[in-house]
Simulated assay, not measured.
Amino acid sequence: MSIETRNTADWDEASHAVADAYFPHTLTPLTRDSAADIVVRAASLGPLRIARIGWGADVTVQSDHPGAFGVNIPLSGSLESVIGRDVVVSTSGLATVCPPDTSTRITRWTRSCEIIGVRIDRDDLEREMRRILARPAQRLPPQIDLTTPAGASWLRFVESLSDQLLDAPGLLHNDLVARQLFGAVTTAFVLAAVPDDGAGCVARPRIVKRVLDELHGDPTRPWTAGEMAEVAGVSVRRLQEGFRQYVGRSPSECLLDIRLERVHADLLDAQPHDTVTDVALRWGFTHTGRFAAAYRHKYGVPPSASLRGT
């Protein structure tokens, strides 16, 4: 689903547009202004939906966020919310986390406030949390600091993904890309939202080897960090630390290297009808530009040169 900006002077129509893009809600304008300055853009990526919303006026919004978490990231202005018993005020650099099926009232959404709203289905996020943290899903905090390294990394990812989804809707129809992007954005979100408690040891060499064996055995699988951690039986953080300690690279860097090796071998032994794109897709690469750059960096030549045997 993709929804573009709506221009309307009618508050009921504006409210319906935001409900379609993000969550059903009850809207109360706090001024006599019309809805002429509303901004609504949204796109879905499986169980993940990203929206850009600005009312262009001071409003209050009431929602129970049925079946999904809502993460409201102000790009400007201020967002004042009451979530159960928690009072949360978020401005740029902070994000408000609205749990599913819980009464949430945004008591003041200021005129200048435009947000990126990230909606993640509850069951999918909780499943990913169990994989990523290697323990049962836990209650998320009502607010996330996006100025920490993990928070800033997730915010950059969400902003970039928002631009890609809204400007290139073709991504929405590629299941492989959708799964990889969903896994990446949820992993980054959980690592930003849940502090590292220091529990658990770094993954031991045999556990790292177990993951490497799985990656070698099925490199075309759209692996997510959570799935790798599930294979290892440790959290994503512990797995990443184990790979850094024993391999000197991250799990995703190892997977990239394995795929490049398979592509390289196939290009050198290509059939007459094979193309670079065919071979790259065969081994799990879905972005031809990034693939070509990674291949040149590893082998010193473009993949087309290997295909021609030059």
Rank of each mutant, 00 (worst) to 15 (best):
L165T: 11
S160H: 14
F189L: 15
R179W: 13
R210T: 13
R135P: 01
D175P: 01
G200W: 10
G217M: 05
T148P: 01
R237T: 14
S162R: 09
L172A: 15
D145K: 03
L239W: 05
P141T: 09
Q138P: 02
T148F: 05
A178Q: 09
F243H: 06
K209Q: 15
L146W: 12
L171D: 05
L191G: 00
L140S: 02
A188R: 14
W154H: 15
T224S: 14
F182I: 10
P136H: 06
R131H: 10
A134M: 05
I144H: 00
L146H: 07
T148K: 01
D213Y: 11
V236K: 00
S160L: 10
P222D: 05
K209E: 12
P149F: 10
T148C: 01
L161W: 07
P141F: 09
P141G: 04
V158K: 00
V211T: 04
R238Q: 10
A199H: 13
L140I: 13
H173S: 14
E230G: 01
V236Q: 04
G217S: 07
L172I: 15
R237S: 04
R156H: 13
D167I: 02
R238D: 04
D213A: 09
E128G: 02
A137I: 11
L176E: 12
D167N: 15
A178M: 11
E159Y: 09
S153H: 12
F189H: 03
G217I: 08
A134W: 03
A184C: 04
Q138G: 15
V202H: 01
A188E: 05
V158L: 07
A193C: 06
E214G: 07
V177F: 13
V158G: 00
L133M: 14
D145T: 11
P141K: 03
R244H: 11
E227D: 13
P205F: 08
K209D: 14
R130M: 09
T186M: 00
V158Y: 02
I144D: 01
Q143D: 05
V231H: 02
E126A: 01
V177M: 04
L212Q: 15
A134L: 03
V236P: 00
A152C: 02
L155K: 06
S153R: 13
L239M: 11
A134Y: 03
R127N: 09
P205M: 06
L166V: 06
L166P: 08
L133Y: 07
G217P: 03
A192P: 06
Q164T: 14
T147E: 11
T147I: 09
D213F: 11
T147L: 11
F182K: 00
E241N: 03
P219E: 05
L215I: 15
R204M: 10
T220K: 06
F189V: 11
H173F: 14
D196W: 07
W154T: 08
I207Q: 11
E128C: 10
S153L: 09
R139P: 01
I207C: 03
L125H: 08
Q245G: 00
L176A: 06
L215G: 01
P222H: 10
A184M: 13
F243K: 00
H216Q: 11
D218T: 13
L181H: 06
C201W: 12
D167G: 15
V190F: 00
D197M: 01
T224K: 00
A150F: 10
R238L: 04
N174I: 15
A192H: 07
D167S: 15
D218Q: 07
Q240M: 06
